[in-house]
Computed example of a mutant assay.
Amino acid sequence: MDIRTFDVFDDDLFHSYNQIYRAAELFERPDAPVWSEHEAAVTFRKPDDAEHWAAYAAFDGDTMVGSSFLASPQLDNTHMTWGAVYVAPELRRRGIGGELVEHLVRTTAEAGRPIILAEASYDFARRDDHPYRRFAEKHGFALASTEISRVLGLPVPETQLQAWIEEAAPHHTAYKVESYVGDLPDHILPSFCHVTNQLALDAPTGDIEFEAEAITPEVWRQKEAKIKEQGRTLLTTVAADERGEAVAVTNMAAPGDDPAKVFQWATLVLRGHRGHRLGLAIKARNLLELQRLLPDRRQVWTSNEEHNGPMLDINVKMGFEPVEILAEFQRKLDV
């Protein structure tokens, strides 16, 4: 078996790569959210100054039998990588996945990075002994953080969304809540980036130690261009202070290739501005804008570290239901 990079612009090879990914992700999880082939292709083909994405595949002769990727931050957290391996269910237990993992580990070490991260989703009932966890531990990874994936069924009655907005409003009269579809306006972008950069520091991350991100307005514009090329619709709501600067942000992405799902991305309120119900206010407002713009969507997917009490409280209040474990694993390397 040979593990190597391949030409991600070769449509036939990339189709094989993506088919293995989909088969692995949907195994025993038929409703799991997955990237479309187009979304994945844009991720690997379009340059990204913030993160380098490398695709690898395992070949038995000319046949692709496994796939993997390794993402390497370029502006911050340059001491780590994060990756994943995929093997179709019918080809498992042949050592393919193990060789792919060790290839990612070697590649990380050769880059001088002492930490590699990986994640896996599985049922609550097997959180302590699921085969994915045992596989990770066999290859030297330790469980470092546990998130809970949750799903909100849509639509939420607009009267309920308005009620949450009105419930929060008396607590943040000094702030202005604004919503945007697609690209953010120039005036809010620097402060939006500042808030976004704090997420890795302020949100619980278990035993994983992150640095603050270093996203700049220029880098975010690059991300917006990639999001649009992937066919996703980005919805963002911010709370701005009296200076007009964002102090709380939330955003969601609606994929063009999956007309039912929406993905909740970041939500964060800066520490000095907490206690004003801004988290509830911006999440309810963003959901209201989503349902007005895309009324046929049926699910919002999100995940939070299981000890992130304030955000879990908001998600439970809004009706998000737990569906599975999202386990984060870490392996420390001698480099």
Rank of each mutant, 00 (worst) to 15 (best):
D296V: 10
A200C: 10
V177D: 00
E289F: 00
R274E: 13
A284E: 02
R277C: 13
P259S: 13
E218Y: 02
I215R: 02
N197A: 01
L199T: 11
L288D: 08
A240R: 15
D257T: 06
A200L: 14
Q264E: 01
Q198K: 14
A214M: 09
A214H: 13
Q198T: 14
V177I: 11
E178F: 01
L184G: 13
R243E: 12
A214I: 04
T267E: 08
I282N: 06
A260D: 15
K261G: 09
L290I: 10
G279L: 03
V247I: 13
E242L: 05
L270Y: 02
N197W: 10
E245Y: 05
A240L: 15
E218G: 03
A212Y: 12
E178L: 14
L235R: 01
N197V: 02
T237Y: 02
A246V: 11
L294W: 09
T237H: 06
I282A: 09
H276E: 15
W220T: 08
G206F: 04
T267R: 06
I208L: 13
G231D: 00
R271S: 12
G272H: 10
K226F: 05
E178T: 13
S191T: 05
P185R: 09
T267M: 13
A225W: 02
V249W: 05
G231L: 03
Y175H: 06
V247F: 10
R271G: 05
P190T: 10
L290V: 09
D296Y: 13
L201A: 12
L280V: 12
L270E: 10
A240N: 14
G275E: 15
G279K: 10
P259W: 05
T237E: 09
W220A: 06
R232L: 07
K228I: 14
E218Q: 05
T250F: 06
G272R: 06
K223R: 15
E218V: 00
E178V: 13
E224K: 11
Q264W: 04
T236V: 11
A253Y: 10
N251E: 15
K223E: 14
R232Y: 04
I282V: 07
P217W: 01
L278S: 00
W220V: 08
E245T: 01
R285M: 04
A214C: 04
D207Q: 03
N286P: 01
L234Q: 13
G231Q: 09
R232G: 03
R243C: 03
L184Q: 04
E242N: 08
R297N: 01
Y175F: 08
K226Q: 01
V249F: 07
M252D: 11
